[in-house]
């Protein structure tokens, strides 16, 4: 589904990603872990299409299509969803209106018939339940005045609405208390299917108790330095990032 080969990315001339290789298949959950500042969020942003990042080498293909040539919106329409670490507040744009526009444009791109008002409302209601958003979302502005937990739940709600093939959750666990974490993780698990895939980017192992990955990658110094089964996350939790750092430095010396 997603294939990243030898990806090099720079911001303002500074190289952040230095040759990332990654392949994600349908039905898989991948975790990308690593200390701060190693390029985890950069990777998510490059897949999303954020403009200030410059791809200097390598490729990203999604279902065989060259992702790097697509606009931000076309990547989303092709089925990529980014759950942000810091979702932007957009005062004045109601969630209903926002999602209606998004669903409309995504469906048009996918050659699906537009939803009727009734169908759309029904869908909103259903998807709100996924993340236990009991309070009325419809009247509120996107993320405005939301607590940290509400913002993250709103991200998962949007994911549910857009039904992506590949969801990339960037530090979705940051700033969440244990209840919010459980709700968000449950939401993600409910949306899981054999046809879609998830990348969970996280600093801590905690989230992976709830969203169990098939594969764990460790990103360090702009590269994936270690890949393993879910137990790798536990080991990392136990031994700390120093372990990876030391191992990496030694490899470098050799």
């Amino acid at each position: 589904m997603l294939k990243i080969e030898n990806l090099h990315v720079a911001i303002e001339g500074r190289e952040i990603l230095k040759g990332v290789n990654l392949q994600i298949n349908k039905g898989e959950v991948h975790a990308i872990m690593g200390p701060n500042g190693t390029g985890k969020s950069t990777l998510a942003s490059v897949i999303a299409g954020k403009e200030k990042y410059e791809v200097t080498e390598g490729s990203i293909t999604f279902n065989g299509k060259n992702l790097l040539e697509m606009s931000i919106e076309d990547r989303a329409r092709e089925g990529i969803f980014i759950g942000f670490q810091y979702p932007v507040e957009i005062p004045g744009v109601s969630i209903t209106n926002f999602m209606k526009t998004a669903v409309e444009e995504v469906r048009r791109y996918r050659n699906l018939p537009p939803l009727s008002e009734l169908e759309f409302r029904k869908m909103m209601k259903e998807k709100e339940k996924v993340v236990e958003l009991t309070e009325k979302l419809s009247g509120r502005s996107v993320n405005e005045g939301f607590s940290g937990g509400e913002k993250k739940r709103n991200e998962i709600f949007q994911m549910a609405m857009l039904e992506p093939e590949l969801a990339i959750l960037d530090e979705t666990d940051s700033g969440l208390d244990i209840d919010a974490l459980r709700i968000v993780a449950n939401g993600v698990n409910k949306l899981k299917s054999p046809d879609n895939a998830t990348i969970v980017i996280t600093h801590y192992q905690r989230l992976l108790d709830y969203i169990v990955p098939d594969v764990v990658h460790i990103l360090f110094d702009g590269k994936i330095v270690k890949t393993g089964p879910k137990e790798l996350a536990l080991e990392l939790e136990k031994r700390g990032y120093e372990w990876i750092k030391n191992e990496y430095e030694q490899q470098k010396l050799q």
């Binding site: 403009e51 979702p87 932007v88 998004a102």
Partner: peptide
């Protein structure tokens, strides 16, 4: 950017 990542042109 945020809005466009939701598939809105």
């Amino acid at each position: 950017y945020y809005i466009r990542t939701r598939g809105i042109c």
